[in-house]
């Protein structure tokens, strides 16, 4: 059942990304281009997703001790604003702003069969592995 939920949740997520057109890098860049040809659509995507997830979280999740099908909620309760968070978010924003693709759309655009999207996807996975190696090295010092 848990696996079924994971699959259904994935389907809804992918359909949402596509219908909202977050999979279109041009649309994402136009959303970020506030002083240019600003396309506010993605602000509505976020507002809509946040309203549903946020109200559901406070009404249905916070009122429970555990999820319906598992032992505990795996949710970070780390509230520390540390350097990795700030540096990571800055680097992520730089990469996102250069091309207009974040991890969900990076996966979605593989379905185009266009090799350029595969290139981006592989580079992204390599970036993750490098980050993990570096944070491990720093943690061991």
């Amino acid at each position: 059942m848990k696996l079924m939920i994971a699959l259904i949740s994935g389907v809804l997520f992918g359909a949402g990304l596509t219908i909202a057109q977050m999979v279109n890098p041009e649309k994402v860049l136009n959303f970020l281009d506030i002083t240019g040809q600003w396309d506010a659509s993605l602000a509505l995507v976020m507002a809509s997703a946040l309203t549903i997830f946020g109200s559901g979280y406070f009404l249905l999740v916070r009122t429970k001790d555990k999820p319906l099908l598992d032992k505990e909620f795996i949710v970070s309760n780390n509230n520390k604003i540390d350097n990795p968070l700030i540096v990571g978010a800055t680097i992520f924003g730089l990469g996102w702003g250069l091309i207009g693709i974040c991890p969900g759309p990076a996966l979605a655009t593989l379905l185009t069969g266009n090799i350029k999207f595969f290139g981006f996807f592989i580079a992204m996975l390599i970036g993750m592995q490098v980050a993990q190696k570096i944070s491990k090295t720093i943690a061991n010092e």
Binding site: G95, C102, P103, M124, I126, G127
Partner: peptide, 8 residues
């Protein structure tokens, strides 16, 4: 950009 998005 891919490296930065993954790394960040």
């Amino acid at each position: 950009a891919g490296l930065l998005v993954g790394f960040g």
